[in-house]
Design a protein around this nucleic acid. Sequence first.
DNA 1: GCGTAGAGTGGGAGCGCTCCCACGATCCGG
DNA 2: CCGGATCGTGGGAGCGCTCCCACTCTACGC
Lengths: 343, 343
Amino acid sequence: MTAARVRSGGRPTLEEVAARAGVGRGTASRVINGSPRVSAHTREAVEAAVAELGYVPNRAARALAGNRTDAIALVVPESESRFFAEPYFSDIVRGVGAALADTEMQLLLTLVGSDRERRRLAQYLTAHRVDGVLLVSVHADDPLPDLLEQLGMPAVMNGRRSATEPLPSVDSDNFEGARGAVEHLVSRGRRSIATITGRLDVYASQRRLDGYRKALADAGHEPDERLIAPADFSEEGGVRAMRELLARRPDVDAVFAASDLMAAGARQVLREAGRRIPDDVALIGFDDSAVARHMDPALTSVRQPIEEMGRAMTRVLLEQIAGESAERQQIVLPTELVVRDSS
Amino acid sequence: MTAARVRSGGRPTLEEVAARAGVGRGTASRVINGSPRVSAHTREAVEAAVAELGYVPNRAARALAGNRTDAIALVVPESESRFFAEPYFSDIVRGVGAALADTEMQLLLTLVGSDRERRRLAQYLTAHRVDGVLLVSVHADDPLPDLLEQLGMPAVMNGRRSATEPLPSVDSDNFEGARGAVEHLVSRGRRSIATITGRLDVYASQRRLDGYRKALADAGHEPDERLIAPADFSEEGGVRAMRELLARRPDVDAVFAASDLMAAGARQVLREAGRRIPDDVALIGFDDSAVARHMDPALTSVRQPIEEMGRAMTRVLLEQIAGESAERQQIVLPTELVVRDSS
DNA sequence: GCGTAGAGTGGGAGCGCTCCCACGATCCGG
DNA sequence: CCGGATCGTGGGAGCGCTCCCACTCTACGC
């Protein structure tokens, strides 16, 4: 034991680990970072020292020296209450957490509400406080994705802005989900199948509408624009849209709503109008939320693999950060129709 | 302009800001950190340089030199699915985010599931990766709070473990919430008022039960243990408990369930038993979740100020970190009875 | 007039790590 | 048997900041 000065209080440093193991700082660093260029004997010695001292690397020092942060940000537009609606947010977070569990990566939660905060966010990223960004609930005209692109910051989006999304993205198969739901209605003998759409400036809404149209076309139904009522994902929107539908096509015998909340609104109107569900009018929602399960009658709904989306986004982002995948991945995950009593 | 070497690519450093403003590094640092010991003239010069260069401090360097991280962790036991149930998680996060918005603090989301991850968490904290910790959904026998206490790490809990919680905590007034709900039932002329409790090793459940008892005692009702059915916050638990209640006291004409989910389970059993809500049996839940709003009939429920709890927790934690408040704050926020059609 | 506060300032010394260069030891082919 | 790879290793030079000591300069007291 030479001059291995043991500090009184604080946590051990790499230097101390090295001293204890009788090696140089560089070698200790190599062991800790899993470099192969270390002899088995030395490795063991260092690992023993780490264990004895209870050494944990100092993140800040690492970040400073290595010019990386080992952290990624989950950026959530707070205004977007849809995203905060259960169980989307929780599930995404859980998926991200699962994918990060075996990693040293930290998850930073960044809520952006006002424009002021949006600017702050740009600073965050400029200041390289994270190695990558997970973006959820992005609008078609959101400047953030392009900003990230310019900065060369690895990023993955949940959903996409258009058919030709340049950024890597993970989305559920909105088209197939909608098509399958409507196909199900057709197979149950429904003739006048309407749809209540989400905001059409959201790409997902477009795709769900496309899927609806495709299913009807495949079934040989005559297209009728009066069966299509645009809304905004909200319950109130569902109420309004259903009223319109009932006025325009009183013979409607099935409704595919692009969200459970809108389906709840539609249900209310149908009930007030004396239509029984599913006897008179079948109803299908989208999201398979708690609302769907507890609605009366229980709502048939299209489930998205939300947690899996969170996992996939994270996986893709980590690959990008590691520089493993040069090509932009566009992942689309399948949905599932959960049939209950309303259809 | 002397030797103010302008680096080609990267982001500007303090040194460069200082050079540009024609001051020393120390002075520039003082301006940026808002020290009063700087002349107005100098301050302006530095601020101008910051603006021109678009300077943003490097977090890692700050953390390393200053031995702090400007980050707090929100620790979420993932196993606790109750917490993930809507809208609790989202609302807490929103509250925390709101309280952090004007701050430089970052929010780290830490999901702990397995025991392995729990150990990792202890390391996180040991490694001082955060300045403070927000703890939610803590069980009575959770070792984490005590660990934090030992480490001297600032921490605030959501809810508390017992009546004599040593750690700072923010909780809703479970006692009053329950008492008010049952009082409401009494005032509506209900005579045989039962309750379905949550897990009784959770302090909140205890308090809700206490509130139930108090309201009945105040109303001069004879206590009857057969009217108390313990469950576990889940819908299935609610089903089982309601069956028991019906068997033990067929004359029950009101049920106060300690969660909306349990109320949903109870509703199902009541309906199967041919009891009308609220005519035959009144029903009240707790949480005022989406389930409550969409239940049929819409469920009367006790709302907790969840977002406000998140804000309060954060406020208390920041004060602790700043060392402003020596005494341990125990904050209790009021609940609100949302009366709907089920009572 | 001189001393003595204090305000305002500059810059050295780290914080704990990674990167990388340089060095000795070992190994191989010719 | 020797030169040149190759492996394993040690440690210097930063990364960009905060902390703090030391210094200058002004204002004021006596």
